[in-house]
Amino acid sequence: MLEVRLFATLRQGREKVYHLDAAGFPDGTAVLDHLHIPKEEVAIFLRNGFHRPTDTALADGDIVAIFPPTGGG
């Protein structure tokens, strides 16, 4: 399974967390397509806590966290 966590405005009209069958999602692009998240709305894409491009390859057991442009200090 993949655990996909969405944050901030990406939660609007979506769940906070998805558990997806890893077999159907070889990379981040497949996850974004499935959840109808346009690539340009993604500012931070984390695979297991590390920044990766959105088309990064995914594997069973991965945790993906996706954030829109946001920040602070």
Binding site: F7, T9, I44, L46, F67, P69, T70, G71, G72
Partner: peptide
């Protein structure tokens, strides 16, 4: 035009960092 200063900080404040920083451990 900037996502952080244009919408992000207004919607969630700096508090949006809690989940970001936690998710990078």
């Amino acid at each position: 035009e900037n996502g952080v200063t244009g919408q992000g900080l207004r919607a969630y404040g700096t508090a949006v960092l809690v989940n970001i920083i936690n998710n990078i451990g």
